[in-house]
Simulated assay, not measured.
Amino acid sequence: MFPGGSGDIGLGLDGSIRHGENFVVRTRELWNQRHYAILIPDTVNSLNLRGHRSSASYERIIEDLLTFAQQEKTGPVFLLGTSQGAIAAANGAAHAPPTALAGVVLSEAVSVMGGSKETVFSATPQDIHAPVLIVANHTDRCNVAPPQEASPIAASMTGSSDVQILRVTGGSTLSKKTCGSLSPHGYFGIEDDVITKISAWMETKLR
Results as ranks from 00 to 15, higher is better:
H19L: 13
H19N: 15
H19W: 10
F23W: 15
R26Y: 01
T27N: 12
T27G: 02
R28Y: 09
R28T: 01
L30R: 14
L30A: 15
W31R: 06
Q33V: 00
R34D: 02
H35E: 12
A37I: 06
A37R: 12
A37Y: 09
L39D: 00
P41M: 05
P41K: 07
T43H: 02
V44F: 07
V44R: 15
N45G: 05
L47E: 08
L47T: 06
G51H: 13
H52P: 00
R53P: 01
S54R: 02
A56Y: 07
A56H: 12
A56G: 06
R60Q: 15
I61E: 04
I61H: 02
I62K: 04
L65W: 06
L65K: 04
L66M: 15
L66K: 03
A69D: 02
Q70K: 14
Q71D: 13
Q71H: 13
K73P: 00
T74L: 15
G75W: 14
P76I: 07
F78G: 00
L80F: 11
L80E: 12
L80R: 03
G81K: 08
T82I: 12
S83N: 08
Q84V: 01
G85C: 03
G85D: 02
I87W: 01
A88H: 05
A94H: 06
H95L: 09
H95M: 12
T99K: 12
A100H: 11
A102R: 12
V104K: 11
L106A: 02
S111M: 04
M113G: 03
M113C: 05
G114F: 01
G114M: 07
G115L: 11
G115S: 13
G115M: 04
S116L: 03
S116E: 14
K117S: 11
E118W: 04
E118L: 01
T119L: 09
T124R: 14
D127S: 15
I128N: 06
I128T: 06
I128C: 05
H129M: 09
A130I: 08
V132Y: 14
V132N: 10
L133N: 12
I134H: 11
A136S: 13
N137L: 09
D140T: 03
R141H: 10
C142N: 15
C142V: 02
N143T: 08
V144L: 08
V144R: 07
A145K: 02
A145W: 00
A145T: 14
P146V: 07
P146A: 09
E149H: 13
E149P: 00
A150F: 07
S151A: 13
S151F: 09
I153S: 08
I153E: 05
A155C: 02
A155V: 05
S156A: 15
M157Y: 09
T158P: 03
G159S: 04
G159L: 05
Q164E: 14
I165W: 09
